[in-house]
């Protein structure tokens, strides 16, 4: 066990620049202790991927990332034979090959002899490991991040099951490969579609939501230590007020941080509704959404305690 208790997880994640809720810390702790995968769900931009990175950082492990997308198949996720290399080697050892088959009485005998050498060509030497195999065969323990697993096809999800429950894969030519170390697996999902119950059953579930005010404020402070106390407060409050509006895409933590960064660059000391409107494009990504924020700017300003008189 790498962590002593839940509190230790929280502290070490914080050292890795990741502030998390007690839920997240508990789940990470349990997953690490029992070698189970974590399925992280939640809206875009609340730090699902970041969590995996932070875990890797604080455990000092390598992060192997598999980005899922529609049409992702085993060849891209697990392993691939390096045909080119195989052919090249065949060319180079041509002499040896002809030596082997020289003196063979018949064609079938020659084929038999070649078949005896098959292992030389279908060996690990010619396998190109893709993220999943790399994570299993790595000699050092790693963190495996399977990002946006909901974007993959259902067939791929079914294929993941073997890996997630037994931490082994079968390669027909080589047999079953067992994990050297059980990797810390994080799967993230945006709820684009529901994951199957079989997959869920194998994972510990964590739902990351938009953080509460204090947490968000601390995150801003951590990532941008230079930000003023007052600006930081106003910023977080405004983002929360904007999030309360009925938007197509709500601003997430990473957008809060982007916004904070732009405000620091613009050397804004205090937020005013005018500044919010001017810099809105960093925060809101749809035209209809920014229109809505502009319409409700007064409500936002009131909620966040912005003063109208302050000039930018």
């Amino acid at each position: 066990m790498e962590f002593e208790n839940v509190e230790a997880v929280r502290q070490r994640l914080e050292e890795a620049d990741y502030i998390c809720s007690p839920e997240a810390a508990t789940v990470v702790f349990l997953a690490e202790a029992t070698g189970k995968p974590v399925l992280v769900e939640g809206p875009a931009g609340v730090g699902k991927t970041e969590l995996a990175k932070a875990v890797a950082k604080c455990l000092g492990r390598e992060l192997i990332r598999l980005q899922c997308y529609e049409g992702l198949d085993e060849a891209k996720a697990l392993y691939e034979w390096e045909y080119a290399k195989q052919l090249l080697y065949t060319q180079m050892v041509k002499d040896k090959l002809s030596e082997i088959i020289s003196g063979a009485g018949s064609l079938s005998e020659a084929v038999d002899r070649i078949a005896n050498q098959e292992d030389a060509f279908f060996s690990e030497r010619f396998i190109q490991p893709r993220p999943l195999l790399a994570a299993l065969t790595s000699l050092k323990p790693v963190v495996l991040l399977i990002d946006e697993v909901d974007k993959s096809d259902p067939e791929f999800e079914a294929f993941l099951l073997e890996i997630l429950s037994d931490f082994q894969v079968s390669i027909p030519e080589l047999g079953t490969k067992k994990a050297v170390h059980i990797p810390f697996v994080v799967l993230t999902s945006n709820n684009y579609r529901d994951m199957s119950d079989a997959l869920k059953r194998r994972c510990i579930h964590l739902y990351l939501d938009y953080p509460d005010r204090d947490l968000e404020r601390r995150i801003v402070q951590l990532k941008l230590p230079g930000i003023g106390q007052r600006l930081g407060d106003q910023l977080v409050d405004s983002v929360r007020a904007i999030r309360d509006l009925d938007l197509k895409k709500k601003p997430c933590i990473s957008e809060t941080l982007d916004w904070a960064r732009s405000l620091v660059v613009l050397q804004v000391e205090e937020l005013s509704p005018a500044v919010v409107e001017e810099t809105l494009s960093v925060l809101v990504k749809y035209r209809s959404d920014s229109g809505k924020v502009r319409e409700n700017i007064k409500k936002v300003a009131d909620k966040a305690g912005l003063t109208w008189t302050a000039s930018s």
Binding site: E23, T26, L39, N191, D194, D197, K200, I204, H205, Y207
Partner: peptide, 9 residues
Amino acid sequence: LRANFAKSR
């Protein structure tokens, strides 16, 4: 309990 019993939002 929640992490194990409630596996969707």
